[in-house]
């Protein structure tokens, strides 16, 4: 087995991103029936969301700067150049919005959601936006990796002929 630092960092990036999405979904579900009894859980889940997204940001940023240029060249030379030109270009900027929403969530959950309908709607909206944009970014990551895979597979197939 040969697992490189690049592999670990990339998988940690995706793993922290999924964890952040799940934590935001947890906030959403708890906030639907906000009561004094679950206020601490909502705030804890919001903190997990922010910390997970920060970790995903750091891991993803490090991988993007240090390891992505080689993969980018591979994708652009393969049959799916849109995996970089459209998908990665959108992902690398859309994720920044997800990150800022994740940092907003712990601030918004300091409101007393059980007695403040407008604050509850705000928290539900922020959590839903994190889940939607976060899962979009996760899916984009899969498309980018597939862009590299088809470049290698089809390039290899051509080479075998």
């Amino acid at each position: 087995m040969n697992i490189s630092a690049s592999d670990v960092i990339l998988l940690a990036h995706a793993g922290f991103g999924v964890t952040g999405c799940l934590a935001a979904l947890w906030v959403f579900i708890e906030a639907l029936s906000a009561q004094p009894g679950n206020a601490a859980r909502i705030r804890a889940a919001a903190l997990v969301t922010a910390l997970s997204m920060a970790a995903a940001w750091i891991c993803g940023g490090y991988w993007y700067v240090h390891f992505y240029p080689a993969e980018k060249a591979l994708i652009l030379g393969g049959p799916w150049p849109f995996a970089h030109n459209l998908v990665m270009e959108t992902k690398e900027h859309l994720f920044l919005i997800t990150g800022m929403l994740a940092f907003l969530l712990p601030v918004a959950t300091r409101e007393e959601l059980f007695s403040h309908a407008a604050a509850r709607k705000l928290v539900l909206s922020v959590a839903a936006l994190i889940v939607i944009t976060g899962l979009t970014v996760e899916g984009a990551g899969a498309v980018i990796e597939h862009g590299a895979k088809v470049a290698l597979l089809r390039g290899g197939a051509k080479g075998d002929r």
């Binding site: 906000a34 009561q35 601030v107 409101e111 059980f114 007695s115 403040h116 309908a117 604050a119 705000l122």
Partner: peptide, 15 residues
Amino acid sequence: NSATAPESPKLKAAT
């Protein structure tokens, strides 16, 4: 509970 809670129109300054 949320059904009987009084509504407050303002958010905190930080929020």
